[in-house]
Each structure stands twice: as structure tokens, then as C-alpha cells.
Amino acid sequence: MSEVVPTALAALERSLDRRLVAALEVCARCGICAESCHVYASDPAPGHVPAARAEAVRTIYRRQHDPLGKVFPWLAGAKDLTEPALDALVETAFASCTLCRRCTINCPLGVDTALIMRAARSMLTATGKAPEMLVMLADAAIARGEHADEFREIYREIVASLEEEAQEKTGDPMLRIPPGQRGGRHPLRRALRRAHHLARGDPLPRGRGELDAQHVRGQQLRPLPGRPD
């Protein structure tokens, strides 16, 4: 028997902390999270609903830890992990989820689907199925002992070049991408408004190692003079 499946299950087991267990157990599969996902907004396939994405891990978890899933897997929606299922999980965990956590903010229960996808990524990395480039980058950062925060200056330079590019593309010389600074229009908000229904004051993901975009505050969203936002 291949070692892949036991290795993946062991990785899932190591990931199972309180937050992950709560995220795996609490989902009511109401589907309300669908439109909050960028991927679903651009390609509204049922498989792109965050709840459906997380089900790929939940089915495995239920088979391992849910009493009903052990006895009546068909009723609980539990499945044994197989290598083809792991292969399918690569697309789900690495390509169709960016871990942006918009679905978590928009979930009435606060289901942390990104955390579940991170567990899936751990399983895939442990079994050598993660995209090679990502593994190399992560290994290099770990080998050099570099924290994401140490790339802050490089990040600012990249954002500055993106700012110029965005100004050219939109024809808006006033467009600013101000990481960690007051003022300017929220670039993430601008992008999101194309696909989502945002209201003033809606929280947007922000955090070190995630999206370091300016937090949405009323005064920061005020349109610049003469240019409606």
C-alpha cells in the first residue's frame, strides 16, 4: 500500500487544533458564502462555493473522527482518503483558493475555510504533491530564517511599481496603493467592487503575511476631490 495516504492523514492529524476542528465541524452548508469568493464570482461553478471546497477535507475528517462517519459514511458525507482524491485536492487547495478569508468574514458562523485549505496544503506538501515552485520558495525562506516581514521593503517596491501600472491601465493618475499609510483610495476595495457588493465599513482582509492593504475606514474611503470613487 502506498505511503501517500497515511502520510496525508498524519499531516491532517497534526493540523487538527481547536480552531481547525471548530471550522470543520461548524459549517451548516447554507451556501451563503458563495458570492464572497473571488473564484466563484468569476466562475460560478458549484465546486467553487467555499463550503464545497472545504468539503473535500471535511469528508476525510468525518471518516476519521466522526462516529456517524465511521459507521454510516454515506449518511455523514464521509469518504476514505485515496490518492486520486489527494490529486484532486491540489487544484482545490492551491489553485482555486487564495486563502483571502473573504468567505470567513461573510460566513454567519465564521467558518475559517482558509484554515481548512491550509490543512489541505499541509497534507499535500507532506506527500510531495504541492506545487514545486511554492515549496522551493518556502524552503528558501525557512533555510535563511527569513520572516515575511523582512520582505517588507521589497514588497513596498513591488507595490510602487504596481501603482504605476495600475495608473496606466486605469488612466487615473490619482490612483494610489498605499501599504500601511493613510490616505489614497483602497485598491483592494476598488478591485473587489467589480465583482462584489461592498458597503462602506465592510471589513477587508488585512494582516502581516496576508493582504497588507489599508483597512477600510470611512475617512479613508472618501473620494478624492473631483473624482468619484
Binding site: A22, A23, E25, V26, L109
Partner: peptide, 22 residues
């Protein structure tokens, strides 16, 4: 899910509160 609701919302608040999102 009624059991886990409290934990899930609590962790949500901790996570995003710490990061200043909410």
C-alpha cells in the same frame, strides 16, 4: 453545529480582532 458555533465565532473574533480587521 450548535455546539461549535460559539467556538467558531470566538476564534473569528480573536483572529480578526488581533489583526485589526474588525
Amino acid at each position: 453545529h450548535c455546539i461549535y458555533f460559539v467556538f467558531s465565532r470566538y476564534f473569528f473574533g480573536l483572529f480578526y480582532g488581533r489583526r485589526g480587521v474588525v
